[in-house]
Design a protein around this nucleic acid. Sequence first.
DNA 1: AATGAATGAGTATTCATTCAT
DNA 2: TATGAATGAATACTCATTCAT
Lengths: 224, 224, 224, 224
Amino acid sequence: MPSQTRKQREREAHRREILAAAERVFVRKGYYAATVEEIAAEAEFAVGTLYNFFDGKKALYHAAVSEIIGQLYADARRRALGLDDPEQAVGALIELELEYAERHRGFLRVTLEMAPGGELDPAEGLPDEAQRVIDQYRQDVIEVFRRGVERGVFDALDPFYLALCLEGIVKAFITYWSRHEPDEPLAVRCEKLKQTFIGRIKLRQTGPAAEAEPRVDRGQGGQS
Amino acid sequence: MPSQTRKQREREAHRREILAAAERVFVRKGYYAATVEEIAAEAEFAVGTLYNFFDGKKALYHAAVSEIIGQLYADARRRALGLDDPEQAVGALIELELEYAERHRGFLRVTLEMAPGGELDPAEGLPDEAQRVIDQYRQDVIEVFRRGVERGVFDALDPFYLALCLEGIVKAFITYWSRHEPDEPLAVRCEKLKQTFIGRIKLRQTGPAAEAEPRVDRGQGGQS
Amino acid sequence: MPSQTRKQREREAHRREILAAAERVFVRKGYYAATVEEIAAEAEFAVGTLYNFFDGKKALYHAAVSEIIGQLYADARRRALGLDDPEQAVGALIELELEYAERHRGFLRVTLEMAPGGELDPAEGLPDEAQRVIDQYRQDVIEVFRRGVERGVFDALDPFYLALCLEGIVKAFITYWSRHEPDEPLAVRCEKLKQTFIGRIKLRQTGPAAEAEPRVDRGQGGQS
Amino acid sequence: MPSQTRKQREREAHRREILAAAERVFVRKGYYAATVEEIAAEAEFAVGTLYNFFDGKKALYHAAVSEIIGQLYADARRRALGLDDPEQAVGALIELELEYAERHRGFLRVTLEMAPGGELDPAEGLPDEAQRVIDQYRQDVIEVFRRGVERGVFDALDPFYLALCLEGIVKAFITYWSRHEPDEPLAVRCEKLKQTFIGRIKLRQTGPAAEAEPRVDRGQGGQS
DNA sequence: AATGAATGAGTATTCATTCAT
DNA sequence: TATGAATGAATACTCATTCAT
């Protein structure tokens, strides 16, 4: 039944066009400022058509956010999380996230912004699926750190702590740079961030006393 | 004359009540989802009364945000930034911010959320005054780190970098804990965060070879 | 394709219905006292629909005023201004304006009333287009008088002065009659006004034959 | 009882101050755009105080309009209507009205503007008292013309017609000049208007002395 | 009388959603 | 399916009026 299949393919293509348009508009304007009409115009469809594919503005938003986050995660798996060397993996993650933020100016907004009708928590408005992807993403990052600690590449710190720190640091820099135009090219900023972060947590082969503090007072050990 | 003063005091009290109500509602709902009517109800005043004190919803929002941030900064100066010992100062900052986040559940939302009309940048919509306070706050934190590096308490890292990292890390943890109920009491979490962060950046008195790389690959030397 | 055309025609028809309703309401209530809701009800559309056709209350007002004035001017050109004989042209103008005022009871209100935001000048709030039409109308009237003076039909008075006098006189009578129910039929009032005004400005053939004053016994004075 | 009297005098003084402030504001802004608060500020009283003297905004408006019209009428009686010579009286009226319009820029607004809630007629919203004064004023003007015709100073035209024409012409010129800055000083405009209007209606002493037509080259007749 | 803070009904405008074609 | 005109609930803001002090 080729005709049927063509129809299905066409329908799917339209769905993707609408979703892509929604992404662009939400990223441009944020949830509240975006209008269904603008999304429709961006997608070159009539408003009514959007409702044939999605259940409404909120559903469209959820689908768009899921899409973006899904892409990021997929990229991360492909380019970073899959690497065997933890140090390289962390470096690739930083690289990827900075590039992503650079490419999708305003992408942050989608992750940080208050979602519709959200209560108390910035992330609450995210669709469950997106939330799950984010959690999975974080788990994978934690796993990278865990492996790094296990292999003696990183200091014996809590992998979860490390993952959260990485997340926070990268976001802080992205936010800062999105406000104050950075004076260095992306590659340089990226390199610096990688070196410094990794430099902080790499196990120092400081002679024989390769102390085992999972964390803290590492200085004390050196004294002895 | 006392009568005059009483009226003024009452007016000021009403202003504060309204502002407090606005804070609560904005924190609960976010800027867009909050309605002036709800704020008025929360404040137990008529809508019109709000407009006798503030110029509109946006002004109310700005005043509320400025209020919160102003309080935080004032507290920070009193309890942390003024301390002479950089290590103690950083510890006090972490403590203060965590406490603050604990007290104002959802406070983050106000800082992170897209402000009215904001494009692309979460902080763009903040009132100028609040933005100035935030910038000043960050400057003060940078100064603390600068002093720490100068005095040989911290590793020779860029103070600005350190300030931004601290900011990001604290926010990441706050965000995480605001979503996943933490299993440890605040004091413990606070202590851990302080120790680990500070531990990462404290200058290690590693015997004579206390090399001064401002950052990175401190391990390399040992490898060769 | 007829379907496309039908939709367009329907849309245009709806636009006209809304405009007509707005005319009626504005004429009835004046700009400030009219409400968008009332106009919508008069047009038998929902409020929102009005905003699909016009940019707001002011735009609706402007469109309505322009419509009325445009019609008047178009009629004037067709029935009066085009006439070659200045005397006939002036007569036709008077006739037309009186008829117009009779048909659009309250039309004057639209021309005289303070327009939105107007300061100090009744005409200031008129939309530019309407103002241009009014100015053009006046210019055309001036031209009629100029021709009349040139041809020796009218006394050698300033055409601009004559045009303004005509305007004022007609308005004064319309206003008066709109308040005090006139006791004569329109045609009679019209005829009187024409005769008297034209009689005042017609060149007197100063010869002995103390000419056919279109009206009244001016002879009496001479008799005494 | 001097104290009582002082109180009364003070109260009356306050009333007049408020009224004067209302006049200024209504003239400046028109009825709808004026706010009670602005009037109160202009009068240097609290809003509440205004309500001790007047029943509300509409009452204030009515009182203010009545006041203005009353002044105009009083002035007219003193300076124009009382003159025995009809020609001088008409001249003085024109002079007075032009001066009045010049002094109270925006005065016209008060006479022409739609009154609050008025229906169909610009003048309907005027308070009865003001309407009565206007009617009386017009009657007095009619009487001047009647006398002029009776005495053979003016052509034998309907005095009512003449009064209405005068009214309309003066208003038309005032309106025009309020929009297009006049290029002649008030005195000149005033003189021209007087000469032309009166010249149009003065009885011509049809004898040989075809004298001093106030203006323009009617002299043509002399050519013959 | 004077004050001015409090009131709340009233209005223009927006925009997600529906549905007849 | 695609369309886009019609809908009307929702919302920020205004301002005349009241009333306790």
